[in-house]
Design a protein around this nucleic acid. Structure first.
Ligand SMILES: [Mn+2]
Ligand SMILES: [Mn+2]
Ligand SMILES: [Zn+2]
Ligand SMILES: [Zn+2]
Lengths: 143, 143
DNA sequence: TTCGTTAATAATAACCATTCCTGAAAAAAG
DNA sequence: CTTTTTTCAGGAATGGTTATTATTAACGAA
């Protein structure tokens, strides 16, 4: 997935009614460079290094298109900003409440929450995900 | 808990180094009136009905104090604003992605996530909660 | 009570992440 | 090519929330 073929990618855009523009590709490249869970602002700074003419609004729009077509995922915590994730495999991320660093938690998979919830609410459950917060090793030392 | 004694409440404030002011009581009363999961703005409007002199900033500050001493809980979803909940018993809430209505989901209790996560991350896990989104019955009809 | 000290409030400005708007540029379609 | 549609850059606007400051209320000794 990380090294998705150029052809496959173009096709994914086309099927969704979008085009693979240089800006959108630059945002994807930036996400690979950051290789973490960057905010829109951080993606913007990474993109600007190569192309200083790109606008922050464009990055936001590109991120939302990339999310819509399923190439990336937006992750929310109790504090802004939203973080973006190239890893679309099911997995859990934890965010340090002190410094904001996000890390992945490997090897933990919980049951599918949606079904059990669906039996107990008249709402149509469309999404149920864990939000995990904590303190990273570095921040734990200085406290 | 809902009909917590005046005396107990005062004591809870005092132990936390705060005082039970008329504004803070008004915010609690408003939360009871709304009897749902109101935003700060909605609490503000409810409080203003009785005391038009109260300031929005005061409501935000009161809510954060009430949360700190454990009388209410703040609930976050992928969309703002934050909602506040008088019900501090462990339970799940679902938010309609279309209209924002929040409802409680009774009778569902999942295992304690924190422990299993803790074994797989160097972070100190301080919080792991489900964020649940869906479509309410009313919104489902008009689609 | 009174005075001095601290905490809380009202009003308003500032903040920050995000979205919206507009005219220009680029891409796609014909 | 020419026309039509999509995307973009730049910048203004928005919405929820927090910070600032002067005023008011609560507290705590004499
Ligand atoms: Mn991740
Ligand atoms: Mn609730
Ligand atoms: Zn940290
Ligand atoms: Zn609804």
């Amino acid at each position: 997935m990380v090294s998705m073929l150029e052809r496959d990618m173009r096709e994914k855009f086309r099927r969704s009614g979008y085009t693979l523009t240089s800006q959108r590709r630059a945002v994807l490249d930036a996400l690979r460079d950051c290789k973490g869970h960057p905010s829109a602002e951080e993606v913007y700074l990474a993109v600007k290094k190569r192309n200083p003419r790109v606008a922050l609004g464009t990055v936001y729009q590109a991120l939302s298109v990339l999310e819509e077509i399923g190439l990336i995922e937006a992750k929310h915590w109790s504090e802004t900003p939203v973080r973006y994730d190239l890893n679309t495999e099911p997995h859990h991320d934890i965010r340090c409440a002190k410094c904001g660093a996000v890390a992945e938690i490997p090897g933990v998979e919980f049951e599918d929450f949606a079904s059990r919830l669906q039996e107990n609410t008249p709402y149509e459950v469309t999404n149920a995900s864990l939000v995990i917060e904590g303190v990273c090793p570095a921040c734990r030392l200085e406290s």
